[in-house]
Structure formats: structure tokens, C-alpha cells
Design a protein around this nucleic acid. Structure first.
Lengths: 194, 194
DNA sequence: ACCTGAACACCGTTCAAGT
DNA sequence: ACCTGAACACCGTTCAAGT
């Protein structure tokens, strides 16, 4: 009985996976190194063998979230939805990716997927439009996700029976198609050019 | 010599102003209740006479930042720039307003100024476009502001001599004009309708 | 009306030392 | 290679008590 007696012995991957699971349970604000350590039955200082700082751990989590973004979706809108949905996969995922991206840590996978989709569509300023769409998606998703969670637990001024999330999908689609350029706008079919 | 002997005696306004000044010096991450209290020569617990929580204080700061957004600028792009510049007026202003707005605390002054500008321009979906532009501006400004400050202090992977801020103004203008609708696009002058 | 003093339950990080 | 134990310098918040 030497293999799984009860000693833990973790590595980078097991720490990150445990942290990601804890993120879903308690949210980013309560995701502390001490809580992660407790979940692994380990002293807080043990985490610093695997990650040099909390920031590095968070960057790893952000990378795992963006890594699940599907490449080569059909069209810019579908790609943008893929990014948004990846952010929504984990609690506070948008906020986490936004702040990590701002500090220029973590990969730029989302950015590259977006510009690829734009180039495939023949957009003129693929790089600039890709950046703009990414900024919009991150801002939008951060706002919506925080609001969604605040709604589910009643901790805000409830304005009657109105669902605050209603209409936000419409705003998202409008935003992405507008930023992508006239080519992929759904309401106005592209007029054949001479 | 009774008026200004040395006793402090503060109110809501003096606390908020001191906190805003400290924000510019140390940034949002290091803006603690204890630091604000120290700056006012007061015990940390004294702050809770004026604000029920740190979150309420931060919401007040966010309101003061957005209150400086000018109403009735000429055009949607100018209005959006006014919002961005107001966020840039204080260190981490964009991040602060974004997170406060997400929690649905603080005023929606920025939102209303934007939709007003859009309606004045005769945009069809003024409310939706206003929301989309606000999400874009908040996401964009948060990203840019964090990157700007990381640049000025050398704490990131410097990719040669390239200025990271270069081209971001272009992305901002492109994003806002695209989201506002074809009417106010600068590169393509509005073709006279029949 | 506004503040002190003391406490409670937490943080991230470092570092010698253990196995 | 991976972890413990103990410490350091912090947090936000509460609450009785002072003036």
C-alpha cells in the first residue's frame, strides 16, 4: 500500500485544477492562496513551490479558460460567441481573463483566433478590428457575468420583475457584427458590389 | 485659536477626496481603508462612520469620476472620448468604474450621456448601441490604462522599442464609429440618401 | 457627531528546515 | 522534489467606549 496511502504530492497541474474548481465555488474575490492550499490539504507555503506568486497562478487559470476557445468557427460572430462562452464556463472567468490580459500575462489565443476569423472573412483592418472586438467582448462579458451572479443571489436593487439579462444577447450580436464590418451584418444582407 | 487647532473632524466629502488623491498615488490594488485612514490621521474604524463599507466608498469614487463626463459633446465619437478621458483622469479609473458599474452601484451617467448623443444623431437602436459602446469603452480603457502604467514602470516583457500604446487610439476610434453606425464613420463620408 | 482602542478573522509571501 | 512551521507585514470590519 505504498501508492495512494494518504500523502498528497502535487504538481503544477493538480494545483491549477484545484484552484479552478474552487474558483467556481467561491468566486474570484474569495479565491485565496490559503483556501486553495486547504483544499489540497497542504500548507499555503507549499503552493509557492509550484507557482512563484498568486498572479502567476491566476495567469495559468486564465490560460486554461482561453485555451478552450474553439479555432476556426464559421464566421466572426460565431468566433466571438465562442470566446464569450469560454469566459462564461467558469465563475468570474471574464474578469479573470480581462485583468490577466491587461497585465500582458497569459496567452493571446483569443486575439489570434479573432483576427484569423476576420482575415478569412476578408476584413480590411483585421488586426485593429480583432483588438476592438476583443475589448468589446471582454468588457461586455465582465459586466454581464457579474450582473448575472448578482441577480441569482438577491443582493441588488431589483427593479420589478424585469430580467436584467434580457436584451444583452442582442447588444452582444449588434456589437460584434458592427465591429466586424458590414460584411457579416445579419439584418442588412450584403449588397452585391459592381 | 479654536478653529484649526489640529483636530481633524472629517465628513463624507473630505474622506472621498482624500481617497481619490491616494488612488492616484498608489493605485487601486493598494488603496486600503487603513491607508486612507492613515492619510487622514485617523483610526481605520473612523471611516465606517462616513461609509458603511469599502465598496460604498469605491462606488462614491466611481461616481465622482463619471460625474466629470461632459454632457452634450458634438457627436458620438466626441462623447465616447469624453468618457474615456474622464476614466483616464485618475489612476485605475477605468477598472474602478467598470467593477462598480458591474455591481450596479453608482450612477449610470455615462450610459445616459451616450444614448443621448446617439438619439441626437438619429441612430435607430440608441439604447442598445449606447450599451454596446459603453461596454467597449470600459473594456478598452481598462486594458489600455493598465498597459500604460505597466509600461511606464518596466515590469513586463518589453518587445523591442515598440510603443504598445501606439495604434490604440486608432482602435478606439474605429470601435466607436463602427458601433455608432455608419452615420458618423469618418473614413467613409455619408453618401447622400435619395 | 465623530472618533479611539482593541479585537476578530483573515490575507500574500518568505525561508529555514524537514523527508 | 515537495512540503512543514513559523514568522512578517499586512487586510476589512465590528463594537464598546470616549468626547
Amino acid at each position: 500500500m505504498s501508492p495512494e496511502t494518504n500523502q498528497a504530492r502535487h504538481d503544477r497541474d493538480s494545483v491549477a485544477r484545484s484552484a479552478l474548481a474552487l474558483l467556481d465555488e467561491v468566486g474570484l474575490a474569495d479565491l485565496s492562496m490559503r483556501r486553495i492550499a486547504a483544499r489540497l490539504d497542504v500548507q499555503p507555503s507549499a503552493l509557492y513551490w509550484h507557482f512563484t506568486s498568486k498572479q502567476e497562478l491566476l495567469a495559468e487559470l486564465a490560460d486554461r479558460i482561453t485555451a478552450s476557445i474553439p479555432r476556426g468557427s464559421d464566421g466572426v460572430l460565431a468566433t466571438a460567441r465562442g470566446i464569450r462562452d469560454a469566459l462564461f464556463t467558469h465563475r468570474d472567468g471574464a474578469e479573470l481573463v480581462l485583468s490577466t490580459y491587461a497585465l500582458q500575462l497569459g496567452s493571446s489565443h483569443a486575439q489570434s483566433v479573432l483576427t484569423a476569423a476576420l482575415e478569412a472573412h476578408g476584413a480590411p483592418d483585421a488586426a485593429d478590428r480583432g483588438a476592438a472586438i476583443l475589448h468589446f467582448v471582454l468588457g461586455h462579458a465582465t459586466l454581464v457575468q457579474q450582473r448575472m451572479h448578482a441577480d441569482s443571489h438577491g443582493a441588488l436593487p431589483t427593479a420589478g420583475e424585469i430580467d436584467v439579462t434580457a436584451g444583452l444577447d442582442r447588444v452582444f450580436d449588434l456589437g460584434v457584427t458592427a465591429l466586424a464590418g458590414v460584411l457579416s451584418a445579419p439584418a442588412t444582407p450584403p449588397r452585391a458590389r459592381a
